[in-house]
Design a protein around this nucleic acid. Structure first.
Lengths: 129, 129
DNA sequence: CAGTATCCTGTGAGATACTG
DNA sequence: CAGTATCTCACAGGATACTG
């Protein structure tokens, strides 16, 4: 993958590349690894949303951290920020088309979670004994 | 999702649940958030592997961290550990069926990365100016 | 070979308070 | 309302050395 993005052969052929330090995959796995990214993206799924509403949906996140996350996602082109020149201020965050496209693989993860989390939890219980 | 795993309606209906503190999704997103999980799983894709070989595939990881990661994945039932009573010692790690099933959503992420990482990187460049 | 055992550090993230 | 500004800290993770 780091050497050939358009590689057309099977999964095994590119499996090693993801492990190379300069592989673009690290970008993705690095970003989704950040604690709040996924939640913000999922929270934005219904549509454009104001800061406070977003914060409420995400839950316990502090404004500082939410802002940091949003800036990062903006920088990645996954989220757009639109400020209206009003008083009181009004700002709307939304997923960009690129950001919306991430919903699909995230959905795959969620589907996996729904299907298999019970097994994982059972395994964890067993591990404790 | 936290309230109804078998919910059959659309994505929007369950979008909020993932944000609840007790949602099982957190288990997944929490685990994949750990820095080395994905890499270990991907590294194990080809088949059973010894500690040192695994370490070499994953790259720069230290033995301590690799061990921690493996123990966690073992606890989750995603990876199995098999020790042969020989000298020198020999241990083989492998994906369990459950662990192998995780390869699918991971593949979706990788596919997304392959398709869109250039856009993300371009956006980051723009953000720096 | 397959790990442990220590020690150490950066930083992601929380708490709290304040402002254009 | 939509953030900033500080301060603080746990802890994931790294470096290094050692062992059954």
């Amino acid at each position: 993958m780091s050497t050939s993005l358009l590689d057309e052969d099977g999964a095994h052929a590119t499996a090693m590349d993801v492990l190379s330090p300069d592989c673009p995959s690290r970008v993705v796995f690095g970003r989704i690894g950040e604690r709040w990214t996924m939640f913000v993206i999922l929270a934005l799924e219904p549509g454009p949303m104001r800061f406070t509403a977003l914060k409420a949906r995400v839950g316990v996140v502090t404004p500082k951290v939410l802002t940091e996350t949003l800036r990062a996602l903006e920088g990645d082109g996954l989220v757009s920020r639109r400020a209206f020149d009003e008083s009181p201020p009004r700002v709307e965050y939304a997923l960009t088309p690129l950001g919306r496209s991430l919903l699909e693989p995230i959905a795959a993860m969620r589907a996996w979670a729904e299907a298999h989390v019970p097994e994982v939890l059972a395994s964890r219980d067993r591990a404790l004994s």
